[in-house]
Nucleic acid binder design. Structure first.
Length: 364
DNA sequence: GTCATTTGACCAGC
DNA sequence: GCTGGTCAAATGAC
């Protein structure tokens, strides 16, 4: 088992190497492909090892204990594996496409759509005694419940692919947590009316209730970013725990959403504004061994959505517009933006890995 | 200097 | 009048 762990650590080390050289390799697809294939090979090796050990419950318990001993490490190992896998599965133009995983539970991101018009629990977020208040023209409301990352900054709401600017926060009567008000970063520039409210649930602080209001129009503008971010419908439908009525493809998030993250490189839009000609990719969480046998389940890792930029008010800045982005960013985004917090840098993530790796090396 | 966040004040729906 | 939603000045980060 030590060998397996060492292999994982080796894969992580490769990932770090990839990170370090990403800027210089960004324009060298062949090199990137080689490196990611290397990573994939390593983690495939791990995968096979773990699967072979699947029936040995005792050893599996050891893995679980070890992996859970360092959430960041296991998380990163998973991400590296998935990213490498997706890189190989999506070479070419579609490579740079973002998408939400079809099974959000596996992402540790339980999302639930709540029909605003029928949600009696609405109003003061959790206070059923409060009546819902609507302003003029305040139609088109959608409510989504998002599970917050169980580690990191709990104050940061889950990302949703858009860029938001916080314009207010209010203590809500009968609610333990304040409600934060966001508007689209492009409101002034493109007169985008989209807004959202984010509030943590009283009974479960790990769940954010996000109320979207109005549709984004910023991507329709001729001067606006040309990539349509995921519409609210896309998000909510994708987010629902029950299958959506029709398959929905998620276009890439706004490049701006990426700008607030680990890298500022951007990916060239794939389709026309308003139309999605892209192919979504889903980060497959299943390690091919069904429930209980997957590494994900072994690790019991909770990750935040990797699909978009932080919608959070802090930790990252908004409004830094970028015009295009490169495929690598998706990988970087998926690898290093698994949380809403901007402090999930590779250095932080890999600090523990390095320690483990060094230990493993010394062991050898 | 620019832009995002904070926060008290004000507005408006109920 | 109460309370949610928004504004805008102050403040801070980059």
């Amino acid at each position: 088992m030590d060998e397996t762990i060492a292999t994982v650590l080796y894969g992580c080390k490769l990932g770090k190497e990839l990170e370090a050289n990403l800027p210089s390799w960004a324009n060298q697809p062949a090199v990137l492909l080689s490196k990611t294939e290397q990573i994939l090979t390593v983690f495939n090796n791990v995968k096979e090892r773990l699967m072979s050990h699947h029936q040995q419950q005792q050893q599996q318990q050891v893995v679980q204990e070890w992996l859970s001993s360092s959430a960041a490490t296991s998380h990163q190992a998973l991400e590296l594996f998935h990213v490498a896998e997706n890189m190989l599965d999506h070479r070419g133009p579609a490579f740079a496409v973002h998408g939400m995983p079809p099974e959000n539970d596996q992402m540790g991101l339980q999302q639930q759509v709540v029909d605003a018009s029928h949600d009696s629990s609405r109003g003061a977020a959790s206070s059923s005694s409060q009546r819902q208040r609507r302003r003029m023209g305040d139609t088109d409301r959608r409510i989504v419940r998002l599970a917050a990352p169980r580690m990191g900054n709990l104050e940061l709401p889950p990302e949703d692919g858009y860029t938001w600017r916080k314009y207010g926060q209010k203590e809500i009567l009968g609610s333990r947590f304040p409600r934060a008000y966001y508007r689209c970063t492009h409101q002034k520039l493109y007169l985008c009316p989209a807004k959202k409210q984010v509030q943590r649930l009283d009974d479960d602080p790990y769940v954010f209730e996000v109320t979207y209001r109005s549709q984004h129009t910023c991507y329709m503008s001729a001067t606006a970013p040309t990539v349509p971010p995921p519409s609210v419908e896309d998000i909510t439908h994708q987010a629902t725990t029950t299958p959506p009525p029709a398959p929905l493809l998620l276009p890439p998030p706004t490049s701006a959403s990426l700008s607030g993250h680990w890298l500022s490189m951007d990916i060239k839009p794939q389709g026309e504004a308003g139309t999605s000609t892209t192919t979504p990719f889903y980060i497959e969480r299943n390690f091919g061994h069904g429930t209980g046998g997957s590494l994900a389940s072994i690790c019991n890792v909770v990750t935040a959505a990797s699909g978009g930029g932080s919608a959070g008010p802090s930790g990252c800045r908004y409004g830094r517009e970028v015009d295009h982005y490169q495929p690598v960013v998706d990988m970087a985004d998926a690898m290093f933006n698994s949380g809403s917090s901007s402090n999930t840098s590779m250095d932080v993530i890999f600090s523990s890995i390095d320690d483990k790796w060094d230990t493993a090396e010394k062991k050898e």
